[in-house]
């Protein structure tokens, strides 16, 4: 009697294990499938992990972050004198540019009024700070503390003082993830300032440069040409600085972005007016 009960219990547990194993595999298969087809369950998982799970991981590593910040501050403090001299020189240079910019701005305003031109400038949705970075190993993404409650939606352009940073993906109520330009899966429509050479740029394999994947014209750009957004794909507003062409190959060109992706503190989410 006892033996038969034991055999039954064992076989039942084996059946349960098999059911558990099969259900885990089925669930994994479905998740992978939905992930490819961008199903809303996967988006929900992304949102939940971004909103609830990521703050926990950030809290866990807070002491490490603190130690890292202290180390950075120590290095900055050591180079203070040298950096101070550089900054003094830069202030002198910028003051000259500022005088010129103030003059050009007032002239621009007057000319626009004379021509009765429509102002197609961009509007600021939200200035946000960096919460954490996920650009270790595979994707190039950062998390910012602006979300749906601030008017941020998916596919909005994100810039900083140097130029285009990327676009928002996976917005939650309070946070958003920004797909950086250097990600291999990001794609932006750009043009060169000198000859309006339209092309598409995506992140290169080295994680630093951008590489052209499609060019509209046969005319080749030159090394040193500035690249700005063309606004063709209607994701990014026009004429936002992207970078400078640094290398030409037979079919492609490489662009070095103006934004220093390793030193992003604050970004601005913008949209076309």
């Amino acid at each position: 009697m006892a033996l038969s009960f034991k055999v039954k219990a064992l076989s039942r547990s084996k059946v349960l294990k098999n059911i558990f194993l099969s259900s885990i595999f089925l669930l994994s298969f479905l998740l992978i499938l939905f992930s490819k087809s961008d199903y809303f369950i996967v988006n929900k998982i992304k949102t939940i992990s971004n909103t609830f799970f990521h703050p926990i991981t950030s809290f866990i590593v807070a002491p490490v972050k603190l130690a890292n910040n202290l180390q950075n501050q120590f290095y900055q403090f050591r180079n203070l004198k040298f950096e101070n001299n550089i900054l003094k020189e830069e202030i002198m240079r910028l003051k000259k540019w500022q005088a010129l910019a103030v003059h050009n701005t007032s002239e621009n305003r007057v000319l626009k009024r004379l021509l009765n031109a429509t102002d197609n400038s961009i509007s600021l949705v939200k200035t946000a700070s960096l919460v954490s970075r996920n650009d270790f190993m595979y994707n190039k993404m950062i998390n910012i503390n602006a979300g749906i409650k601030d008017g941020v939606i998916n596919n909005m352009a994100v810039v900083n003082h140097r130029g285009l940073v990327g676009r928002t993906v996976d917005t939650s109520i309070t946070n958003s993830r920004v797909l950086l330009l250097t990600d291999p899966n990001s794609s932006i429509a750009v043009k060169t300032i000198s000859n309006d050479n339209n092309s598409l740029l995506q992140g290169a394999d080295d994680g630093v440069h951008l590489i052209s994947s499609f060019s509209k014209t046969e005319i080749k750009p030159k090394v040193g040409d500035l690249v700005v957004t063309s606004g063709n794909a209607q994701v990014f507003p026009t004429n936002i600085l992207v970078g400078k062409i640094v290398k030409l190959t037979k079919n492609n060109f490489y662009v070095l972005p103006f934004v220093d992706f390793k030193n992003i503190d604050y970004v601005q989410v913008i949209e076309t007016k």
């Binding site: 294990k17 558990f20 194993l21 885990i24 595999f25 669930l27 994994s28 998740l31 992978i32 939905f34 992930s35 490819k36 996967v42 998982i45 992304k46 992990s49 971004n50 799970f53 990521h54 996920n134 270790f136 190993m137 595979y138 994707n139 993404m141 993906v169 996976d170 993830r177 797909l179």
Partner: peptide, 30 residues
């Protein structure tokens, strides 16, 4: 058996945070 469930969870979260899509870590761990 709980390790299978643990691998499943960590696989999903690794994929979401590092790749933004679910698959490589999940498949590999499981």
């Amino acid at each position: 058996f709980y390790l299978i469930f643990l691998s499943f969870l960590y696989g999903i979260f690794f994929d979401v945070f590092l790749i933004n899509n679910i698959s490589p870590h999940l498949i590999s761990f499981l």
